[in-house]
Design a protein around this nucleic acid. Sequence first.
DNA 1: CGCGCTATTTATAAAAA
DNA 2: TTTTTTATAAATAGCGC
Lengths: 172, 172
Amino acid sequence: MARQKVKLQYIENNTNRKVTYKKRSKGLQKKAEELHILCGVDVCVIVYGPYDKDPVVWPISQAEAVRILLEYRSRPEMEHTQRKFSQEAYLKQSVAKSKDKYERLLMRNREVEMENLMVDLLCGKPMQQVPYNDIGDLTWVIEDKKRSVRHHIEMLEIAAGNAPAANLAAYQ
Amino acid sequence: MARQKVKLQYIENNTNRKVTYKKRSKGLQKKAEELHILCGVDVCVIVYGPYDKDPVVWPISQAEAVRILLEYRSRPEMEHTQRKFSQEAYLKQSVAKSKDKYERLLMRNREVEMENLMVDLLCGKPMQQVPYNDIGDLTWVIEDKKRSVRHHIEMLEIAAGNAPAANLAAYQ
DNA sequence: CGCGCTATTTATAAAAA
DNA sequence: TTTTTTATAAATAGCGC
């Protein structure tokens, strides 16, 4: 985009491609950081190139990113196109209620808390111990996690059929 | 970056922030796509904001992204610390006006962090990877969780010995 | 290879419609 | 409000060291 306009196609020349990669991936990171700071949104950029040995992962927590991606992957292809994510709809609704930054932070914490609560439930916490006020917020997490829960169950069944004691010891 | 240079800080005005968000997230997508095409590298951008109901997940395969992120998760603690730093800096900036609430939030965040760490340990993360400074704060969380962990183990043993599917189905 | 250096192209903040 | 239009800030392709 400078001395000469470049066609939007794979750069065949190895040297030029690497140079462009370095410049542009740096630029992409900067843009992501600016968006993060200016608008207070979580942004995660992963550049998985053959040049840098490490993929760049920035700046939201990797756990959160994994959660998003696992969920996204578990959706039928049709929904990918339509971009219907009940979870995100919930987030939008929730965040819309926030009038200031403090509340936005609360929302973020709430989100993490619901994740943890769900993990507790997956690990066997009795549903009766869940505070009533949490049920509503928890619902969307659970709904979106059903598929992964089934996966958990499969894993546990495998453990049960093979070497349960050894497998379970790892959890202590 | 136009009629006037904009300071790199959270945009307080709701309208401006939303407008900027829309423009810049679109721009970020474009940049990511260009990098992907020009250099033949996998790029994944996730924008997890309160405006669009959907997180933008683009364009590499989700399986690949998950693999990358899981890899990242297993990396040395030092790099995580750096990330936490920028996150904390961001949080600090965001709630500068309500210091008391901020302090409490930090504690809450710390608590949540410890819970996450504990989950990692339960899942087999080596204790040697836990930063020394975290041990103290972690202790009370673990003490608090021992009972549920035991319950967890009981559940798993029951599942292993009896009818796992039936027991676990209740948690869906 | 990596760092500067422009000439240009892009991105975009603010204004106008 | 959203869209379109500028004017200006940023990003960057090609080159030279």
